[in-house]
Nucleic acid binder design. Structure first.
Lengths: 121, 121
DNA sequence: AAAACGATTGAACAGTTGTTCATATAATCC
DNA sequence: GGATTATATGAACAACTGTTCAATCGTTTT
């Protein structure tokens, strides 16, 4: 009977001890998936600009955001929907206006860390 | 004569003071582009796994990485090339083996921050 | 009620992405 | 030298992405 792929490959490891050790520490598939999703939220310049703007001001409406970022309402609105789906922003409707704000407290730290990284380069 | 688009839109701002204030703080196009690129490096599960593994062990060769991550050598090698282009990993060739390691010190902090965020959810 | 306005949405489009498969390269072993 | 091994690579493919454009939906204004 054939051994499991992972076991079979273990025999062929170059540095078996390292492989076993890291395998033990590996997070779940779901964890890596969600981690990747989180980074993906900020992996587009338009979304990065939106998040940056919302770090400066608690609330901004769509047209002001598109003015600041200098692109169309439509493009901003589409990206805001993406960020909403990712639970990174929430919004507050007042008449015709939709005021968006950051929904995820932790994102500020993550974003600031990224910015620090970029500016130290 | 027509005014500049950015000026024209400023007149139409819902909260002009906020718009002017945030506009003043905005980073350059290049900065946001690079910021997005940095996050993009970690926005794929396979790359996130590679980075995680290389946070646990200083150096790992391609076949051990593909064993740990449980995918093909080819897929890993392609992603390592992507990470190499982004200057996030470097490698050390020893005979047939290529030992990869993290090239960017700051990435550890950023990645750890992301992981903390995910695990607190 | 009609017009104006802010925001949302869907379709379409080109561009990008990540994997697979087959092949290539380069070092080691027999 | 020929076989084997570790890694790299190019082409192909389907899947996804971000913007634009046109149309729509609510709300407010006149």
């Amino acid at each position: 009977m054939k051994k499991q792929a992972s076991d079979k490959n273990l025999q062929n490891s170059v540095e078996k001890a390292k492989v076993i050790s890291v395998k033990k520490k590996m997070k779940t598939e779901k964890c890596f998936h969600y981690l990747a999703e989180t980074f993906k939220a900020m992996s587009d310049p338009t979304r990065a600009k939106i998040i940056f703007a919302l770090c400066q001001e608690d609330e901004l409406c769509v047209s002001d955001l598109s003015n600041i970022i200098e692109t169309t309402n439509s493009a901003i609105s589409h990206q805001l929907k993406t960020l909403r789906n990712m639970k990174l922003v929430k919004y507050n409707k007042v008449g015709k206006l939709a005021f968006y704000s950051l929904d995820d407290q932790h994102i500020n730290n993550l974003f600031a860390e990224g910015l620090r990284h970029v500016e130290e380069k």
